[in-house]
Simulated scan of single mutants.
Amino acid sequence: MSVEKIWIDGKEDTATTEERAYLVPFIVEHSDKVVIVLPGGGYEHRADHEGAPVAEWLNQNGISAFVLHYRLSPKQQRIPLEDGQRAICYVRAHAAHYGIHPSKIAILGFSAGGHLAAMTGTVYEEQSVTVAGVTQSISSRPDAMILCYPVITMEHYGHEGSRLSLLGAEASPEQIRAHSAEQCVTAQTPPAFIWHNTDDDVVPVQNSLQIAMALEQHHVPFELHIYESGGHGQGLALEHPVMGNWTKQCMIWLHRQGW
């Protein structure tokens, strides 16, 4: 079955798929809310089970979704963030086409995709987007963030593989700090739902605790769930006896936010 790809990177069609960023839509008829899904993979690959199955779960709950195929960027620093920003701007600019409310666009990421989601939610800008011959200024700020066992910091407690893939071995302290999402939180950061497992031996739970503390410091609303077990990288984990509860709690939170 062919997959619809919406190219968002502005590159020529001659570029290879792996060199380009695109969105895959999962649209629910008569749904005006949407979540953009960012799979994890340490900025080295994108985990399939954290992409389409998550979009389908959202669809089953009456929410449209897009899965972002962001570019993998060894030592390219801003490229994934540019893709996250472009994804938000594309969906917002084309909201009328998809029947989506332009102020109900959330972003959801797992692991390194959680880092990209957190960076997209804290480092945003206005971009010029042309739709049907009309150019307008569109904000790349999402309206809510869902961070699932996220990589947050590039400093202590961070995930070394993600840091090396994104920044390289020679990254300066300034670059490391600029790509640590907890350092980028402001009072304008969107509300967040965060969950993690205490026995995660890949991305330490301190990552979620740090972003939660930064959000609290800036008085940004958030909900944090820390589960006793579940390890790392389980995605929806619907059958897990402990962390499997996250999907229910997340949907309750989304509904409370107006999704």
Rank of each mutant, 00 (worst) to 15 (best):
S2Q: 08
K5C: 04
T16M: 08
T17K: 13
T17H: 08
E18C: 01
E19N: 13
F26Q: 07
F26D: 11
H30N: 14
K33L: 02
V34L: 07
L38N: 12
G41S: 07
Y43H: 04
H45G: 12
A47N: 08
D48F: 05
A55C: 08
E56K: 15
W57V: 01
I63Q: 05
I63C: 01
R71T: 13
S73A: 05
E82W: 04
D83H: 03
D83R: 03
G84L: 01
R86G: 00
V91R: 00
V91K: 01
V91D: 00
R92Q: 00
R92C: 00
H94S: 00
A95E: 01
A96R: 10
A96W: 07
A96Q: 14
P102Y: 01
K104Q: 12
L108F: 04
A112S: 07
G113V: 05
L116R: 14
M119P: 02
G121N: 10
Q127N: 09
G133P: 03
V134C: 06
Q136C: 06
S137T: 10
I138P: 01
S139Y: 12
R141F: 07
M145R: 09
C148N: 14
C148R: 08
P150Q: 11
P150V: 15
M154L: 10
S162E: 05
L166R: 15
E170V: 06
E170P: 02
E170Y: 04
A171D: 00
A171L: 00
S172A: 01
P173Y: 12
Q175C: 00
I176H: 05
R177M: 08
H179C: 05
S180Y: 11
Q183H: 15
T186M: 10
A187I: 11
F193K: 10
I194V: 15
I194F: 13
I194P: 11
W195V: 07
H196G: 13
D201A: 11
V203C: 14
V205K: 07
L209K: 12
A212M: 12
V220T: 14
V220N: 12
P221R: 14
E223D: 12
G230M: 10
H232A: 01
G233I: 02
G235W: 05
G235H: 04
H240M: 08
H240G: 10
Q249T: 06
C250D: 14
M251V: 09
